[in-house]
Design a protein around this nucleic acid. Structure first.
Lengths: 228, 228
DNA sequence: TAGTGGTCTAGACCACGAC
DNA sequence: TCGTGGTCTAGACCACTAT
């Protein structure tokens, strides 16, 4: 195969977003070994029939999210990772993913309160000015190493009891399900393009399409590697 | 004044980096009121004599760092902020900056240990494989709202007593000065270009040029605004 | 010297918002 | 309709790395 016509021109999805998807899957599938150069940017242009702008924007995102790293004059490489690829590419299920792999997951809840959301959050959740949200700031760790700083906002009316739930050991989604019968069913990335997508913002649909806003920043683990 | 020839062609500094500097200063000086549109990207191109690529890269960074926000079809705006502009533009002195403005600053120390650094950190600090570092993870808050998640690495030999210092209430730099006679004298941003500079990495020179590595991620405060 | 990523140009078309 | 930011093209030159 010389050309992979995987970038569709007939859908209203930016080419770089499509390319991110394609590359993420390829990385996840182990297409390129860690620390071995990917095809060059020029080659990727030819492979997918797009300009270098598109390729660089896609690669830049994957670098920003810790899947790739670049070395000037040498190339672009897959970050060797044991853990992170499994959750970076997923919108939810961190707890389940990690424990099923034998890792010890813990959450340190930094804040768990009912607040009037900021305009940004209010707009994202489509609330009016008087509706409160439950705000949960958590620091998530795997085997003792901080991996994620997560802020979650959920409309209070959806799950009033969540403000008192104990989230230290378990999954937010389990608590949502058990206490309020809410299951996550959709996910939409709402991040801005071009520069800096970490912090990564995700809109999750719970229940009958009601949204929950999650803002997560991938852990600052020494260039992506779990410590020790 | 029609054209501001503030972008120098004869220095080896990328135009977008120079433009970031210029725009940061203009924002800090209050050139544009919050929530009022800046000159359009096209106008900025004309004003500084650069292409739209450069302008967008600079604006994208400032958006990423929370100084600006963009609205499609409308324009680019200064984020109304009371606090953050003062420290986003500085490499150090957070504690001093904030307290001098009457804010209550606190640090929650999440981790403060002696560790063998990862390859990434080791290379940045130019250590060999056997040298340890003091690693300090802090969550910095202003008036109770989390603003910064900061990881700091400092070679252990520079300040062995720092591993036991109490940093909860005060400044790391004060502790460095008092306990080890180390003053910060230089700062180098070592971030990658293009996409995603938050997390922001800074190399600080302390003492006679020995480095200290700081990795800080600007707070996730609802699109940049301090809560409440 | 040849290849890589980093920077930059000068255009283009689009969806969206205001008018 | 017009201006805005969002996306995209097809080039270019540079510094750096490896040979």
């Amino acid at each position: 195969m010389t050309t992979q016509p995987r970038i569709r021109r007939d859908v209203p999805i930016p080419y770089y977003d499509q390319l991110i998807q394609v590359l993420q899957e390829a990385i996840g599938a182990g297409t390129w070994a860690p620390n071995v150069p990917l095809p060059s940017e020029h080659e990727l242009c030819a492979m997918y029939g797009v300009s270098r702008t598109v390729v660089r924007q896609a690669l830049g995102e994957l670098v920003a999210h810790g899947l790739l790293y670049r070395v000037k004059g040498k190339g672009t490489f897959v970050v060797p990772r044991k853990i992170e690829e499994h959750f970076i590419q997923r919108t939810h299920g961190f707890h389940q993913d990690m424990t099923s792999q034998g890792y010890t997951v813990s959450s340190r809840v930094l804040e768990q309160t009912v607040v009037l959301p900021s305009p940004y959050v209010r707009q994202a959740l489509q609330l009016d000015e008087h509706q409160h949200t439950i705000k949960i700031d958590r620091l998530r760790s795997v085997d003792g190493a901080v991996l994620l700083f997560v802020q979650t906002y959920i409309p209070e009316y959806l799950c009033p009891t969540l403000a008192q739930a104990d989230l230290a050991g378990g999954s937010l989604y389990v608590a949502l399900q058990e206490q309020c019968g809410l299951g996550v069913n959709t996910a939409t990335r709402t991040v801005e393009a071009v520069a800096a997508r970490s912090p990564m913002t995700t809109l999750l649909g719970v229940g009958k399409g009601e949204p929950l806003l999650k803002i997560e920043s991938v852990g600052y683990l020494d260039d992506g590697r779990p410590v020790e």
